[in-house]
């Protein structure tokens, strides 16, 4: 039961990194791949209907940690106190920026919030997990830069996949440039994870670069998503022995009654969530075009 809940939590975090990964990338890139406000909004509208739902993967992952492994939850967030404060600040200004952008007189402030609020968590989640695994500032820096680069790449590919015209063209170039930066970073970051999934993740990133080059955007997105999944799997596989230094899963876990109850609830609810979130992506499956008459 303890292992099952560890897998569920790893699944939720992984889902969060894949989904919010491209949200972060799109948030970071939208101002830079657009020539005017219409294109800027075109970029942001690719994540408009889904980013809030994507963020709930984080809320659920953290809630599940709280319920299933209280000592892990409290130990992790009190140990990484200030980085977590900054992540929260990022998520706040980003969320507000996205929702308010079309309704304020000075959208530049919202754009600033969206960019900073996307960059901070994209960097800091990597830094936090790298520090957790390797316990050094250098590792944290490498981890942070790697996840930041990965989010930019993932987001650029998503933009190329979901838009048309100028944004699509520029996003492809950004994705190519990003993979040139991310690949050497991945060589450092992923090789230190020293596992098969991490090795395959490297391959997926290389494949992504080639696929973008050949304009196979859908497959390129699959490849970047796979790279994130494999990286996350590798990280959680490493954490399984000791989710925090000096703590085992068994010590951190809630009692069997709570875990059983949560399992039933999760088993019943999760399929519904996956179905209706999947339906959202289906509804908004078309490429986003620039609005006919920009403001």
């Amino acid at each position: 039961m303890i292992d099952l809940w560890f897998v569920i939590i790893a699944f939720l975090w992984t889902g969060y990194f894949v989904l919010e990964g491209f949200d972060f990338g799109v948030g970071l890139l939208s101002p830079f791949v657009s020539a005017d406000d219409g294109e800027h909004r075109q970029g942001l509208q690719t994540i408009g209907p889904v980013w809030d739902g994507n963020e709930v993967w984080l809320i659920t992952a953290v809630g599940a940690m709280f319920a299933a492994f209280p000592a892990w939850y409290s130990g992790l967030f009190s140990a990484f106190y200030l980085p977590v404060v900054l992540i929260l600040v990022g998520l706040i200004v980003r969320g507000v920026g996205l929702e308010w952008r079309g309704k304020v007189s000075y959208p530049a402030w919202c754009d600033l919030g969206i960019v900073i609020g996307s960059a901070l968590p994209a960097f800091l989640w990597g830094a936090v997990f790298a520090n957790l695994l390797f316990g050094s500032a250098v590792a944290a820096l490498v981890g942070g830069v790697f996840t930041l680069g990965l989010c930019v790449l993932h987001g650029a590919v998503f933009l190329a996949l979901k838009t048309d015209g100028g944004v699509r063209r520029r996003s492809r170039l950004v994705a190519l440039a990003a993979s040139a930066v991310v690949l050497p970073l991945a060589a450092v970051a992923l090789s230190s994870l020293d596992s098969l999934p991490a090795l395959v993740a490297m391959g997926a990133l290389a494949a992504a670069a080639a696929l973008i080059w050949r304009r196979r955007e859908g497959w390129a997105f699959t490849a970047t998503a796979a790279a994130i999944v494999l990286t996350s799997v590798s990280v959680f596989a490493d954490l399984r022995g000791a989710p925090l230094p000096g703590l085992t899963l068994a010590e951190a876990a809630s009692g069997p009654y709570t875990l059983t109850m949560l399992s039933w609830i999760g088993l019943i609810a999760l399929p519904f969530v996956l179905v209706y979130q999947g339906w959202t992506y289906w509804v908004f499956r078309k490429r986003v075009r620039v609005a006919v008459a920009p403001r």
């Binding site: 809320i59 659920t60 953290v62 599940a64 319920a67 209280p70 809630s254 969530v273």
Partner: peptide, 16 residues
């Protein structure tokens, strides 16, 4: 750490 076993459950259910 003290309450997670009980208090965490409604929070996880809230999210899910």
């Amino acid at each position: 750490t003290f309450v997670g076993d009980v208090f965490g459950a409604p929070l996880a259910m809230e999210a899910l």
